[in-house]
């Protein structure tokens, strides 16, 4: 069995090259043409930024709609979009545009932000480090996750879904690869039940430890 290699990661952000948006129409136009990395950054990499308990929404577009456009209806509709539910970023883009178009259709004026409150479009390079930590048995996961950084949890449980095999976290991929006789099924099923997108990394780590520890306790 090849041991699971624990990695850590950090982001280096850069401007996307798109001009900032100051109103909902401009937000729509930028989302329609931006690169997929930009979409991924504002929907998924937000988790790696400093976050706090009970943030309102997990994507930048919903937060901007609430704080700077003052449109709570739009913020709620954008805020519920779970990027990991879509088979591709292209489909996430289409769903986001649909929400915005619906709102533009309902509005008598185009919601706008004050100068200085524009939204900027960015993307990031992910830099991945080898922590030197190895896990060789599924029973070790809970303890190992307990001492992982937020970057490790993000890289293995969230960012992994963007890599091949698409949509699968690294823990599950490793458990499937090493699933002799179906003995890893309980771990795989427990991980699949986690409603991960709306957690902060802090809470996601707690949830991972909880479900994996529960399996050990039942042994």
């Amino acid at each position: 069995m090849t041991p699971f290699e624990v990695k850590d990661c950090a982001l280096l952000a850069r401007m996307s090259g798109l001009p900032p948006a100051i109103n909902l129409r401009e937000l729509r136009d930028r989302i329609a043409v931006c690169g997929e990395n930009v979409l991924f950054h504002h929907f998924c990499e937000t988790t790696l930024r400093g976050t706090f308990d009970n943030p309102d929404y997990r994507n930048d577009f919903a937060v901007w709609s609430k704080l700077y456009l003052g449109d709570r209806v739009l913020a709620e509709r954008l805020g519920i979009l779970d990027p990991y539910e879509f088979p591709s970023l292209g489909e996430l883009r289409a769903a986001t545009l649909e929400v915005i178009d619906e709102r533009l259709g309902e509005s008598t004026t185009i919601p706008w932000a004050r100068p200085g409150d524009e939204i900027y479009f960015m993307e990031a390079t992910t830099v991945v480090f080898d922590t030197g930590i190895r896990i060789s048995h599924p029973g070790e996961f809970a303890a190992a996750i307990g001492s992982m950084t937020g970057g490790s949890v993000y890289y293995h449980f969230l960012e992994a879904r963007r890599r091949s095999p698409f949509g699968r976290d690294d823990f599950t991929a490793w458990l499937l690869e090493n699933d002799e006789g179906g003995k890893n099924r309980p771990y795989i099923e427990a991980l699949a039940r986690i409603d991960f997108y709306f957690h902060t990394l802090h809470h996601l780590r707690k949830e991972l430890i909880k479900v994996l520890s529960a399996l050990e306790d039942t042994k």
Partner: peptide
């Protein structure tokens, strides 16, 4: 430490622009 990490990363990215959006070190 975060500041220096970002400088080192951007040097890697700039020197090896073929590395795309994921840089493994």
């Amino acid at each position: 430490t975060r500041h220096i990490r970002e400088y080192l990363t951007l040097m890697l990215v700039t020197l090896h622009s073929d590395r795309g959006n994921l840089v493994e070190v």
